[in-house]
Write a protein that binds this DNA or RNA. Structure first.
Length: 287
DNA sequence: AATTGAACCAACCGCCCGTCA
DNA sequence: ATGACGGGCGGTTGGTTCAAT
């Protein structure tokens, strides 16, 4: 019954891969293709576990891997997606061509986490550490607030602008609404508006930017200024109901048990304020 | 120059889930 | 129907490099 063991753990090499092992693995996969990791080591003449071969190929030897530092755009994608789906590194990696889940995970733990903390943002909740303390004190037991912020985390060119923003945010916070506007770099005609409601209920609600009838016209005429909402999220993960109700901005239901945003990305909006080539949510599901 | 600690990242570990015998 | 395995995933470890003292 069942299958035979993947590999004998004894007599297997461990640790760093040698150049020769790499060459054997690459050569074998080039001629036979990926797959069947179980039988690959023996066929390729490697004293490695199939798992180890798979990992080495996926994380290091694959020809389509992008090497070098992460770009600012990639940083943003990672942060935004992490705020949405958490430590789902493979899902995040799927939005970043040439990057692996392992690479992103390492980058998150070594760079982004620290960057967020230095800016007073909790990397787990993506909320301001200070704001969290304030709101926590006001929380009632049956009113658990979990808002998701996609705030920009990068240095502003002008501190005075930042101060203005902070002042505006504080005022909005007092009014029960956090609102932030920012012009997109390289696209001065585009204003990104972020709206955070600290007292949101627990339903999960992810919506694309509201539909603008003149969207096409605007994209044709880049000089025209238009506003798009970055994302509107009500997180219901802690709700007693396991099934989150997901609706688009125009209230049409997507799914009760899973979220399929393919219809959104296919429209071509700058969903999450990111290039849609990164944001094809076809395989993303949230329960 | 030597030592120490931080940072980085490749690789491993252990678990989960779908598939197969 | 059952139980074992393969593949995939997230978390962790350990070796290497770099910077500070």
């Amino acid at each position: 019954m069942g299958r035979s063991p993947c590999c004998e753990k004894e007599h297997m090499n461990k640790g760093a891969w040698t150049k020769e092992e790499d060459e054997r693995l690459v050569s074998y996969i080039k001629s036979h293709g990926e797959g069947c990791w179980r039988s690959l080591p023996r066929a390729a003449g490697l004293l490695r576990c199939g798992k180890s071969c798979r990992l080495r190929w996926i994380n290091y030897l694959r020809p389509d891997l992008k090497r070098g530092n992460f770009t600012r755009d990639e940083d943003e994608v990672i942060i935004n997606l992490h705020s949405l789906i958490g430590n789902k590194w493979s899902l995040i990696a799927a939005r970043l061509p040439g990057r692996t889940d392992n690479e992103i995970k390492n980058y998150w733990n070594t760079h982004i986490k620290r960057k967020l903390l230095s800016k007073g943002i909790d990397p787990n909740t993506h909320r301001s550490i200070n704001a969290g303390k304030v709101s926590d004190s006001k929380k009632t037991e049956d009113q658990v607030v979990k808002d998701v912020s996609f705030g920009y985390l990068f240095d502003k060119t002008e501190k005075s602008e930042e101060q203005k923003q902070n002042k505006k945010q504080k005022q909005n916070l007092i009014n029960g609404l956090v609102c932030k506007e920012e012009r997109v770099e390289h696209h001065p005609a585009v204003v990104v508006q972020e709206i955070f409601c600290p007292n949101l209920n627990l339903e999960l609600r992810i919506s694309p930017p509201w539909h603008n009838k003149n969207h096409d016209d605007h994209t044709k005429e880049k000089s025209t200024t238009y506003t798009t909402s970055r994302l509107y999220v009500q997180n219901g993960m802690e709700s007693s109901s396991d099934t989150a109700k997901c609706q688009t901005e125009d209230s049409s239901s997507i799914s009760h048990s899973s979220l399929d945003i393919s219809s959104i990305s296919s429209v071509g909006y700058d969903f999450l304020g990111l290039n849609t080539r990164f944001m094809d949510f076809r395989s993303l599901e949230m329960n």
